[in-house]
Design a binder for these strands. Structure first.
Length: 473
DNA sequence: CGTTTTTGACCAGCGC
DNA sequence: GCGCTGGTCAAAAACG
């Protein structure tokens, strides 16, 4: 108990002002006893000297809060009691009150944080469930679509086969079998569709077709300072070679998101422009993919089917990829090519140039490798592309369903466009649309490298491999 | 210590 | 058959 407390106690009891350190506090104390001021005046003598020896009988000390002594025990020498707090019996110090409030706020903050964490966990859980369901739905839809396409294709060809020269049909079907067997094995299977349908060895043909699909590739040319474009998958490097005609080594990666996944990709810098990275994908994933990887993953398989379809005979004649692509993406131009004349049929997306200088002003490549990233048209383009994909797919949908789907596609496109890490995969998605449409229209690929529609998409420099690979690429 | 990368060796396809 | 080339394997090294 320091002297100030003793002094304060004295003041509270007597109202005597012996405070030499601050008058204001004394006044406040006096205000606290305002009700008894008259009495106190009577207690004091005319000369101001205390008259403690003559206590008034009218004094009622019951009004004096005895807590005062206790409340001031923690006050330092320079502190005085806040009269508004005196009598409350809880806190007499603003700092204490602030500390108390801070403790309360912290407690509330902790509670909110815990609640936030809990909600985050719930959100993640629901998001995972949603993604899984979405993946499952997409897979089911794709399978359904393929089954319908196959049915339509068979019916179409069966109805046409009377009009088609039988020898030609036999030759082209055989050619298809040759194409479906990249290893060059002889295939003397059935020569008509009916025979094919009835052929018990048709599974062998399907296996050959699958082999072709596996060999079909999607190549993406993009300006990228990093060693790889981000496509949402995890890759492991398993080899590197110096390819002929390019001093830059070619790196070989395989997907490691699941054991036995057949998907592989090659990454190589362009010989002419070291800033251009050429990424070639091959195969179809055999495992669930994160949303960021779905577009690219579907691209390779779709492109493979497209190219396989392009090798098939058709009474519709040769397809025009450029026209087809313009139908899919009317605002696009010359960003993609299809080539089945290469050792492996390949869809090439050239993302190193802007199709429309007015639409896509020059942006430093190190900032926005693909102008698409910052372009507001991306969601519209994607949505339109997805919509057109559905429209061309042959699926019969009511207008209401179509509208609802369009809304969902718009949301999806917006979400995709907002994620810069997703852009490379979006590019692939566009090519996937081209692939599906060509497949659905049952056209041939005439290997003329016609330009296909595609708008810019963006890229980023993320990589799932060790950055040390930069030295090699 | 497990995983990933590096890198030389090996294999298959293709052209001559 | 031989050589070239692309692609893959696998042991060693590097990494975290």
């Amino acid at each position: 108990m320091d002297s100030s407390n003793s002094r304060l106690h004295l003041n509270a009891c007597t109202g005597h002002d012996d405070n030499r350190s601050g008058k204001r506090e004394v006044v406040d104390e006096m205000d606290f006893f305002a009700d008894n001021k008259e009495i106190e005046d009577d207690v004091e003598g005319d000369n101001g000297s205390p008259k403690l020896s003559r206590p008034s009988s009218s004094l009622d000390f019951s009004h004096v809060n005895t807590d005062l002594l206790l409340l001031t025990t923690t006050a330092n020498t320079n502190d005085r009691i806040d009269p508004s707090l005196v009598g409350m019996g809880t806190s007499s110090n603003p700092e204490q009150r602030e500390k108390c409030e801070i403790r309360v706020l912290r407690s509330e903050l902790e509670k909110m944080s815990l609640e936030n964490e809990r909600l985050k966990e719930m959100l993640n859980e629901e998001t995972n469930k949603y993604n899984n369901l979405r993946m499952h739905l997409i897979t089911m839809m794709r399978q359904n679509q393929e089954q319908q396409q196959q049915t339509i294709h068979r019916n179409h060809r069966n109805s046409d086969q009377i009009e088609i020269n039988r020898n030609y049909h036999a030759d082209t079907t055989d050619d298809h079998h040759h194409r479906a067997s990249p290893e060059g094995r002889e295939n003397h299977g059935p020569t008509t569709d009916k025979e094919m349908l009835d052929d018990p060895n048709r599974n062998v043909d399907q296996a050959a077709a699958e082999a072709t699909i596996k060999k079909a590739r999607v190549s993406v040319r993009a300006r990228c300072e990093g060693n790889m474009i981000t496509d949402g998958c995890q890759w492991r490097k398993y080899g590197q070679k110096i390819a002929k005609g390019n001093p830059c080594p070619r790196a070989y990666y395989r997907c490691t998101m699941a054991a036995g996944c057949p998907v592989r990709k090659q990454v190589q810098r362009c010989a002419d422009d070291k800033h251009i990275l050429i990424t070639t994908y091959e195969g179809t994933h055999n495992h669930p993919l994160p949303p960021a990887a779905m577009a690219m993953a579907s691209t390779t398989s779709s492109a493979a089917r497209m190219l396989l379809s392009g090798s098939m005979p058709s009474a519709d004649g040769l397809m025009n990829p450029n026209l087809l692509a313009q139908t899919i993406l009317p605002c696009s131009s010359h960003m993609a090519t299809i080539s089945a004349s290469a050792p492996f049929p390949t869809v090439t997306l050239d993302l190193t140039q802007s199709p429309n200088p007015l639409q896509f002003p020059n942006i430093p490549s190190n900032q926005y490798p693909f102008p698409f990233t910052t372009n507001a048209l991306l969601p519209q383009i994607l949505s339109q592309a997805f919509h057109n994909q559905t429209r061309f797919s042959g699926l019969q949908m009511s207008q209401e369903t179509d509208q609802g789907r369009q809304s969902q596609l718009n949301d999806t496109a917006n979400a995709l466009a907002a994620d810069p890490n997703f852009t490379a995969a979006l590019v692939a998605a566009i090519s996937s649309l081209v692939a599906n449409n060509s497949n659905n229209n049952n056209n041939n690929n005439n290997n003329n490298n016609n330009n296909m529609a595609n708008d810019n998409a963006s890229n980023n420099n993320g990589s799932s491999v060790n950055p040390s690979n930069n030295n090699n690429l």
